[in-house]
Nucleic acid binder design. Structure first.
Lengths: 122, 122
DNA sequence: CTCTTTCATCGTTATTCGACGATAAACGAT
DNA sequence: ATCGTTTATCGTCGAATAACGATGAAAGAG
């Protein structure tokens, strides 16, 4: 295990939860077509080095490196130094975490409310 | 010499797929804590008007309106005019779509590749 | 009609992002 | 030690973002 995974405030109308930041950070990292492209490539290939990714995108090497840095900082990608090159691997757990957070948000509360609660709130 | 193009035949994502843009757009919309906050609020409450959201955030009304516009353009939220006010509802389908796209990406390919494919290629 | 409420839009400013070229660092091979 | 290869980082520039206050439009109340 890695973290104690503290109690999820079950309150639907709770004011604060660190998940805001986590989900936002993950989404922000994936909020660019080039980065989605990189992640997709890594998902198919398993892992590869930076040059391999550069060849698959219409971007300069420095730009790709920038994007990889963003993905790495979000934890979506891991970089392993291998001599002069760096092997980039997708962190599927992190990506699954993003999916889980989004799915959890989509299912929170009652879909019932989605249609008729506009009147209240006087 | 370099590997011209790693095998990506089995996936629908050899070079281009509109899913890139869709996932990136959805993520970009959620890539801001305030927007995650709004979506979470809507998920709990079902739907409510703009003022209700403003009261829950430390932001000016115009800023919240901007964020709502972004969410609306991404399809994550629907706005219904109700006289002078606007009722905002979360589109759970869209949010689920985001989750599904992320999950699909996380499960694409073989996790087997994630550990040992860095050596080959010499 | 006038007034109030509610929200969207406009204009502004500061910050961040995305992209590039150029440069430097790390390593293997010669 | 010197190359060649591969990456990361720096500096820069234009564009987009985020935030705000102020203004304006739509609908109901008086």
């Amino acid at each position: 295990m890695k973290e104690p995974m503290p109690p999820l405030p079950p309150g639907p109308a709770a004011g604060e939860s660190p998940e805001h930041a986590e989900l936002a950070a993950l989404c922000k990292a994936l909020g660019h077509p080039a980065r989605v492209r990189i992640v997709e490539h890594l998902a198919g290939v398993g892992c590869c080095m930076c040059g391999c990714i550069v060849e698959n995108l219409p971007l300069a090497q420095s730009t790709v490196s920038q994007h990889l840095k963003v993905l790495k900082e979000a934890g979506l990608v891991r970089g392993t130094l291998e001599g002069p090159r760096t092997c980039y691997c997708l962190d599927r757990e992190r990506l699954a975490r993003l999916a889980a957070l989004a799915a959890g948000l989509a299912e929170r509360g009652d879909p019932d409310l989605d249609l008729g609660s506009c009147d209240e709130g006087t």
